[in-house]
């Protein structure tokens, strides 16, 4: 290209800029754009982390008894996994990473490392939230206030009220020295024998209409069972009976 042509482009462009009053976009436009992108990164990450916290909490509380009792089967795995929170974790992290990539220098980071980093951070922060009791508070709030939350959050009562697999769920009606009377979710009364080997986790064994418990054990005779383990239904218990999903 000739220098005359180069000059002509320069001149032509400057005339166009002047003639059409083309102005550089104001600084705030770019600051706003970058701020919005970072806002999306932070919000998506926070949502993903909260969802991770709930996932960790529910998986821990729901599965620990199952694993102890060695009765975990595919059915339980499919129905008890908190898919809702897992999905929200995935969506949150996807948008967080997508938005991060759109920041001025986010593209320089390797995507695989970013995904691993996001998982590590969300599990770390989610774990801290769980330990601090945040997950339990959110879970209990949603269980008591949102009717549809229970069934979609891995809260399937019938998995914990299955005499054949040695699981009972209900409220403690009576406490004696060596046994409890538990009113199960189906309304039946069970005498639960306590032995020296019975493990009681995270609760006091006292009659409490608001305190739903899970019992893992074995049937000894009609209406009686021996408990291996007794623990709150979820977290520290205290579920409202009306919100227990009791559909076989």
């Amino acid at each position: 290209m000739s220098s005359e042509h180069e000059q002509s482009l320069s001149t032509r462009l400057l005339e166009k800029i002047e003639g059409e009053h083309v102005e550089p976009r104001p600084q705030w436009h770019f600051l706003l754009h970058e701020s919005v992108v970072w806002f999306v990164v932070v919000v998506a990450f926070v949502i993903g982390t909260i969802a991770t916290a709930l996932t960790l909490y529910i998986v821990h509380t729901v599965f620990s008894a199952r694993l102890n009792a060695l009765t975990l089967d595919l059915d339980a795995l499919v129905f008890l996994v908190p898919w809702l929170w897992l999905a929200l974790t995935a969506v949150g992290m996807f948008y967080a990473l997508h938005a991060f990539h759109a920041t001025s220098r986010g593209y320089r980071f390797n995507r695989h490392w970013l995904v691993l980093g996001a998982i590590a951070l969300s599990v770390t922060f989610g774990g801290v939230l769980s330990v601090l009791g945040f997950s339990e508070a959110v879970d209990r709030f949603l269980l008591s206030e949102v009717a549809m939350y229970g069934p979609v959050s891995g809260y399937r009562a019938h998995h914990w009220m299955n005499v054949e697999t040695g699981h009972w769920a209900g409220v403690v009606r009576e406490r004696q020295q060596e046994h409890l009377v538990v009113e199960a979710l189906d309304g039946s009364l069970w005498e639960v024998q306590l032995t020296d080997n019975t493990v009681v986790r995270g609760m006091a064994l006292a009659p409490d209409e608001q305190m739903y418990v899970r019992v893992i054990g074995t049937t000894t005779e009609s209406g009686m069972c021996e408990a291996y383990e007794i623990r709150p239904f979820r977290g520290r218990g205290g579920m409202r009976p009306a919100r227990i999903e009791w559909a076989m």
Partner: peptide, 20 residues
Amino acid sequence: VLQDVFLKVYVNARGFDPSL
């Protein structure tokens, strides 16, 4: 396209990060 490129550069001049 070349002309558009330079116009975009001008319009987005304040968005350029001088450290890049």
